[in-house]
Design a protein around this nucleic acid. Structure first.
Length: 431
RNA sequence: GUCCCCAUCGUCUAGCCUGGUUAGGACAUAGGCCUUUCGAGCCUACGGCACCGGUUCAAAUCCGGUUGGGGACGCCA
């Protein structure tokens, strides 16, 4: 049994997008499942469009996703190899020089590829009779470099996106002409955008790094991508990369293009966020906060941990902690539009009483806060919720949020008193 | 236009290979419960085999066609 060797071959002409990430994931999984090798090949033959920053971002995203590779190859360092093979083809009369470039002459034969995912795919014709393999600037063309590298690196199975399916007959022909063994192929369906249609830059985030910056956890993105086109079976939705490594099989990969769903990704991400401890999430939230707040505020480790505990059961990405929890990071409370109904009932006097009752509290913890609020409500002949709603608006500016008493404890007495006073003033000024 | 791929709830999917299931699960949606609120949690509901024909006692499952969707046709990768 030959060793399984797979590769992921991104071009550093853009960021790693989620479609590429899934291809990389499946390719990695297939290698790991079969105790084989996984190669990362940077296809940087286009000197104009290839950028160092893209390459770095791809490497970083691969690492972030947990997709390690056994070998890293740059096509830009192998130009001599491609030229040598081109010369060989010229000698053999299978290619010729023309207009400063080298053209490969197809000798078309019926081609059948037994794709590991799609089964037998047949071609009875090819749209062209020749193909540039070395461009006039002496750099290799994609199909040529790809075929040579796959053969030389010993790639046993080429796993790539379905958009490459139509390149396959060309590559098979070139591979045969060069005297190489033709590798196996597995073409993974493309990911489509939410509404169907092509993944477009215009709709939502496409780069893996964007998801990282928004506070999606790598295990969540990996888990979600895994579910797109593959299923662990047994009605399971949650699966780790580590476990997938053991049960993954290319044969179970769907042939159908799948539409990306941010809703489902959010659900998966919220699951993983709940699994994490506040300590796990701290550095990530700090990172987001520093980006948003431009380093103006410094919050203590302990305070941040408390805020994270407040929110981690109910957010779908970590940036939400910073956005939804803005009242934890800013002293200025803006009452959101949907609080109008609550604010329309003037409870200035009652809130004043509550404020005075909270003021002398020594240990400002949630139990005492709750007792105080409930007692105050009772004394005033109100239900607890009659006070809870406006107090929540005073404290957070919002109608919904984490448990009010926990929130008040985390924010601390001074802030609470100030914010209650602000609401009282708001009412006194007549809204 | 030519070639290629695909087709189960709105979305992701199990089932298909080896015909006989009340076609299962998840997200989303709606309703209910809990509760201090909720976008959290729990429960319930809604909702699907694209269409036509064939094979068969029997078709989501096998075959053909139609329609629909996607991809490729660069000295980009």
């Amino acid at each position: 049994m030959d060793e399984v060797i797979t590769r992921f071959a991104p071009s550093p002409t853009g960021y790693l997008h989620i479609g590429g990430a899934r291809t990389a994931l499946f390719s990695w999984l297939y290698a790991r499942k079969n105790k084989g090798r996984f190669i990362l090949r940077i296809e940087d033959t286009d000197q104009q469009r290839s950028k160092k920053e893209y390459e770095e971002e791809i490497l970083l995203s691969m690492k972030w996703l947990g997709l390690d590779y056994d070998e890293l190859v740059y096509q830009s360092q192998r130009f001599d190899i491609y030229r040598q093979y081109a010369d060989k083809l010229i000698e053999q009369g299978k290619a010729c020089k023309k207009e400063g470039a080298v053209f490969f002459k197809y000798e078309f034969d019926k081609i059948v590829v037994d794709d590991l995912i799609r089964g037998k795919v047949k071609w009875t014709e090819l749209p062209k009779t020749e193909e540039v393999i070395i461009k006039s600037d002496k750099t290799p063309a994609y199909n040529f470099a790809c075929v040579i590298d796959d053969a030389l690196l010993g790639v046993s199975c080429v796993i790539r996106g379905e958009d490459h399916l139509s390149n396959t007959p060309k590559q098979v022909l070139m591979s045969k002409a060069l005297g190489f063994d033709v590798p196996k192929f597995a073409h993974i369906p493309l990911i489509m955008s939410e509404g169907g249609g092509r993944m477009s830059k215009r709709f939502g985030a496409t780069a893996v790094s964007e998801y990282r910056k928004m506070g999606y956890l790598p295990e969540a993105l990996v888990n979600y991508l895994l579910l797109l086109g593959w299923s662990p079976g047994n009605n399971r939705e949650i699966i780790s990369l580590d476990e997938a490594k053991d049960i993954f099989d290319l044969k179970n990969v769907n042939k159908t293009a799948a539409a990306f769903s941010l809703d489902k990704l959010n659900w998966v991400n919220s699951y993983y966020i709940k699994q994490k401890t506040a300590e796990d999430l701290l550095p990530l939230v700090e990172g987001i906060l520093k980006g948003e707040k431009a380093g103006d505020f410094s919050f203590s480790r302990d305070y941040l941990l408390q805020v994270i505990r407040l929110f981690k059961e109910r957010v779908s990405c970590l940036r939400e902690i910073v956005e939804w929890g803005d009242f934890c990071f800013s002293e200025e409370i803006v009452y959101s539009g949907d609080t109008e109904k609550i604010l329309s009932k003037n409870l200035a006097k009652e809130i004043e009483v509550l404020k005075n009752n909270l003021q002398p509290l020594e240990n400002f913890d949630k139990t005492i806060i709750e007792q105080t609020l409930r007692q105050t409500a009772q004394d005033l002949g109100l239900k607890a919720r009659d006070l809870v709603h406006p107090v929540r608006v005073a404290v957070t500016g919002k109608r919904v949020g984490p448990g009010l008493f926990e929130t008040m404890e985390v924010l601390g007495k001074n802030r609470i008193i100030n914010r209650l006073s602000a609401l009282i003033d708001y009412w006194k000024k007549g809204g």
